[in-house]
Amino acid sequence: MQQLIHFFQKFKYFLFFLFLEIIALAFTFNNLSFHKSKFVNSANTITGGLYSQATNISDYFDLKSKNKILAEENNRLKNLLEKSNSIIYNIDSTVVDTVKLNQKYTYTSAKIIKNSYASQFNILTINRGKNQGIQKEMAVINSKGIIGITDVVNARFSTIQSILNRNSKINARLKNSNYFGSLGWDGKNYNIVQLSDLPRQAPLKIGDTIETGGMSTIFPEGILIGIISEINSENSADNKVNITLFNDMSNLNYVNIIKNLEKIEIQSLEN
């Protein structure tokens, strides 16, 4: 007993050090593995509140470019609206006025209050949470393409697992054919992601557009991702191609969060 007390006396700092290090390691491993309850994140009231204060200030510096992006998106959507109107009125002139009949997705707008693209496991924070109807695993996009999937959701803020995260896997396909693969990131360049597991017979050309496939309950079909920038000609098992993103992931501000209204139905069917 005497010796035991002596031992603790002698190594008390080392033991305390070890104790704190183990706590830190536990949080690290917990954070790096996807689909686990997380405690240390920037979506809580204090950090989220401070981040949104900080973006309130820094937002003024790029109002001009944001306005331009919004105007471009408006332009694109107006064009789409014109097209769809003409189709509707040609086929059927009755207007169905039932809320959410046949509607598959709802959109919520949000603002990114913390962006990150230089690390290997990038996580973003947005200023929407449970109070605004955000749930875990909802798609996050902006006008130029996909951004990520919501992860930890708190009352007013949530975190997004960016596509620039080595844990991310997203179903994607070629726009001109229905060959699909899975989209991941190797952690090297924040403009370039990798599409792997494409079938060998899929015709690939540099410059082909890649969009999300309809195989997951998270992303709707046909959201733009990027274009093929490099094709791996050697024979590798996973048949990887490099995709240059349409989005500039280092400059994000307003995003849309997509809720799939049929998600629960599809999941209950699949399980």
Binding site: L20, A24, F27, T28, V40
Partner: peptide
């Protein structure tokens, strides 16, 4: 380190390295 981890979503990496 731990507070910085909270802000940067890095789990416990900053806490680990500064404690070291």
């Amino acid at each position: 380190g731990f507070f910085i981890d909270f802000f940067l979503d890095t789990g416990g990496i900053h806490a680990f390295s500064i404690l070291f």
